[in-house]
Design a protein around this nucleic acid. Structure first.
Length: 485
RNA sequence: GCGGCCGUGGUCUAGUGGUCAUGACAGGGGCUUCCCAAGCCUCUAAUCCCGGGUUCGAAUCCCGGCGGCCGCACCA
């Protein structure tokens, strides 16, 4: 996206060096501002609204954690390298081509070698026999300390939450069900990163892991949204309520429905039109190895429906595994019952979301371009301009600008013509522009111009700050008890 | 990783073997300016993706790498 690059939302990392690898991106000043506001909205609409707790965990974790999580074994692709010319191949793909049958991805290296031998598979480049299957793991390996002890950059943020769960449960006076949230970086050594922010090797995730007793997925807040409808997609799209979805076997319980509705509402408030959001119900083959029921929240972008959030019912898989590998007891007490809680997760791709919001907000009419992002997500809330740079108007505008920056993200611009400044502000999504003119000295008023309508209103300077704050603040956190519709 | 196309200032682009490598937009400084990219003056900015080769001479031809887009595969 041209504007994003030119105006400083985001750009390729280390661009000034040639041969920088793909899949790493930097956020520029505008991008950081928007990303922070987006995460704050997430905090308000999900974490605070549902009474979750938040942590910020380490990005490097010891090998044992990934033995337990299954990533060391399952988060990898089989790969075979030609001993003569060095080309890489996927043995499963080569075998499928040769035999015209489905080859499971989960065979051992030895089994692949046997099959390569049996079907006499040869290198497509030089004809050499292919042997010696190894694994290409998508995790980045790091060596800790002088001994280079084996550890990995986490491929998903949630493992930190699982590992910390027993301590948090004991010390934070929480009861089931409880959500634990985290925003942070994850790392995946993708083979072919592409499409800008949509496919990265270093990604920002905002994750929520809800821990609950599988026998208690109804009652209380989980009843709140059963009357509302959600767009579910499996082969075709249906917009249906909970009971119908359960009858069709699409959603298993009310707790899942409750959180799907919550994340749906969040994206609407982030500025994605309802009609462009849907939940893809994943089939058995499409789910990750840890997942027993899965929904992808997808948004319709110019490149097609794109996954922004993975919602997985992980069962007790993670806690049970960590419990047995670590030797620590991960079970907790729920109303007198001792159990390993089940987990439902909402794993959000922040970078993808930012991209989606920007794309969905681009407007173009009569040669005018503007970014119609929600005022509370805009990189700057307000721009302050002097109508002309003389007669003290510029000084007055500068003074107002610094006044407003107490509580709003503000910038001052006095270059070029006033129209040019409006246009520049429009392009990066500044929702309101304040202009100081000659009338300001007569009656202590200024104009506020609206980005989307270009309409101006005159406002007293003494009311300016309060008024702008009102216009740019986050929506109120909806009270759950009030939402019973 | 495979196949196809591609790589020139921040952006878009001219240039297909030969003097200081085009032009536009964007950006900076100044003048002007009583509200929507106006005008005038001026400045900045590209080791032509990187490395090697062919040649008296390469942005241009050849090889390799890196990167980008599109399909396949993989995924948040």
């Amino acid at each position: 996206m041209r504007v994003a690059h030119q105006r400083g939302f985001f750009f390729k990392s280390a661009e000034s060096y040639p041969n920088s690898p793909a899949g790493f991106w930097d956020y520029g000043p505008l991008g950081v501002s928007m990303k922070n506001k987006f995460i704050e909205l997430w905090r308000r609409e999900l974490v605070k609204r549902d009474g979750m707790i938040e942590i910020d965990g380490s990005q490097i974790l010891p090998k044992a954690v990934f033995v337990a999580s299954g990533h060391l074994e399952s988060f990898s692709d089989p790969i075979v390298r030609c001993r003569k010319c060095g080309s890489f191949f996927r043995p499963d793909k080569l075998l499928e081509e040769k035999t015209k049958t489905q080859i499971p991805e989960k065979l051992s290296n030895k089994e692949y070698d046997d099959m390569l031998e049996k079907y006499d598979i040869r290198c497509e480049n030089c004809g050499e026999k292919l042997r010696g299957t190894t694994r290409f793991n998508m995790m980045f390996r790091v060596g800790i300390g002088a001994a280079e002890e084996e550890a990995y950059l986490r491929p998903e943020t949630c493992q930190t939450i699982f590992v910390d769960f027993p301590l948090l449960f004991k010390t934070q006076r929480v009861k089931l069900p409880v959500g634990i949230a985290q925003v942070g970086k994850s790392f995946r050594n993708e083979i072919a990163p592409r499409q800008g922010l949509l496919r990265l090797r270093e990604i920002t995730q905002a994750e929520i892991e809800v821990f609950f007793n599988p026998k208690r997925t109804e009652g209380g807040k989980f009843e709140l949204f059963i009357g509302s409808k959600l767009p579910l997609y499996k082969e075709k799209e249906v917009v249906i309520g909970f009971s119908e979805a359960r009858d069709m076997g699409l959603v298993s319980n009310k707790l899942v429905w409750y959180y799907l509705k919550m994340i749906f509402d969040f994206y609407v408030k982030a500025g994605i039109p309802e009609k462009d959001i849907r939940f893809r119900v994943l089939s058995d083959e499409d789910r990750a190895f840890y997942s027993r029921e899965a929904f992808d929240l997808e948004v319709k972008l110019s490149i097609g429906w794109t996954e922004l959030v993975a919602c997985n019912y992980r069962g007790d898989y993670d806690l049970t595994r960590h419990s047995s590998v670590s030797g620590t007891d991960f079970s907790v007490d729920d109303q007198g019952e001792k159990l390993i809680p089940h987990v439902f997760e909402l794993s959000m791709g922040v970078d993808r979301s930012i991209y989606a919001i920007i794309e969905k907000s681009m407007r173009e009419e009569k040669g005018r371009k503007y970014l119609a992002v929600k005022p509370y997500l805009a990189p700057y809330h307000v721009g302050v301009f002097p109508l002309v740079n003389k007669d003290g108007i510029d000084l007055k505008a500068l003074e107002l600008s610094s006044l407003l920056s107490n509580c709003l993200d503000t910038f001052y611009d006095d270059s070029g013509s006033i129209g040019r400044r409006y246009a520049r502000a429009d392009e990066v999504g500044v929702p309101y522009c304040v202009t100081v003119d000659y009338d300001t000295f007569k009656d202590e008023t200024v104009t506020i111009r609206d980005r989307d309508t270009r309409v101006q209103q005159r406002v007293k300077i003494e009311e300016l700050s309060r008024k702008l704050e009102e216009m740019t603040r986050y929506p109120d956190i909806a009270s759950l008890s009030m939402q019973n519709k």
